[in-house]
Amino acid sequence: MQETSFLDENRPRDTGQYRHAPLRGRPRLEMPGGARMAFWIAPNIEHYEWMPPVNPNRHPNPRVMPDVMNYSMRDYGNRIGFRRIAEEMARRDIRGSVSLSVTVVDHFPEIIARCNDLGWELFSHGIYNTRYFYGMTLEEQRRVVIDSRETLARVGQSLDGWLTPAITPSLETQEILAQEGVRYTLDYFHDDQPMPLSLKTGRLISVPYSIEMNDTPMAAWHLMSGEEILASLKAQFDRMYAEGAQNPRVMCFAIHPFVLGQPHRIDLFAEFLDYVKAHADVWYPTGREIAEWYYETQYDRVSAWLGTLEGEA
């Protein structure tokens, strides 16, 4: 078990952790208040280390080490960008569900205090966003999950959600999360709705995060201007809102204070939040609340339906 994921000949051809569950024919999700969409925001509050150890599968600083430019750009997010983002969200009464490098609890307690004051959820995004899961042993992965639980407990939060640092999980990562009591994972991008995962032990659901509605891929990979980011967000929202009349959707906007907290982008974020808030029948939960609602009211129903499907499980 321990070394399985390192061996090429043992590579499976799919994750084996969810069955194909097509949109057509699904039971309709029933959201609180009859909402047609759950809209949630996941601020990634991360720390990228000054001189991290080099993971042989992904270099933390491909340009040069140390990388003053990239380190300081990211540090900007914690010093300045976070304040801007928190202020715009609080002004509109939208809480965040924080994808947290849990060491931020140690380095920047002011940020954690502010999140707690605002009623935000904290979930784990690993220890640092420069300690990737690629190539870690399963025992090391488990240590990070346990560390996350203990660290969040120190600031009064339970570890319910998970996003692997830089999205570098092995297949076994999801098993470990379920075994350690994590309630939902954001590592999988296969659906617009929460979905039960089929694991060897324990229960876990995927909740829709987004690698598309995510300021960093938008700005850094797709080189979108601020105007294009705003237009894409509105288009995504409009379509999912319309579709949500048939079967409610979950829309996540994943953000990074060092990207969206820049002075040339922050007002576009505020404009998008105003746009969303101008719509009726939108539910504004945290990730934890999505998971609670789903387990309590939808999980058994959807699982029963999944059991009726033909094809590979």
């Binding site: 390192f6 001189m51 150890p53 042989p56 599968n57 380095h107 220890i127 190539g135 870690m136 090391e140």
Partner: peptide, 21 residues
């Protein structure tokens, strides 16, 4: 293929006690 990080990956400098690293 994934290469192992080696035994020290999580113990090499962990400066979380410090304000800045």
């Amino acid at each position: 293929p994934i290469r192992p990080t080696g035994p020290d990956y999580l113990v090499t400098p962990m400066r979380r006690a410090a304000r800045m690293d």
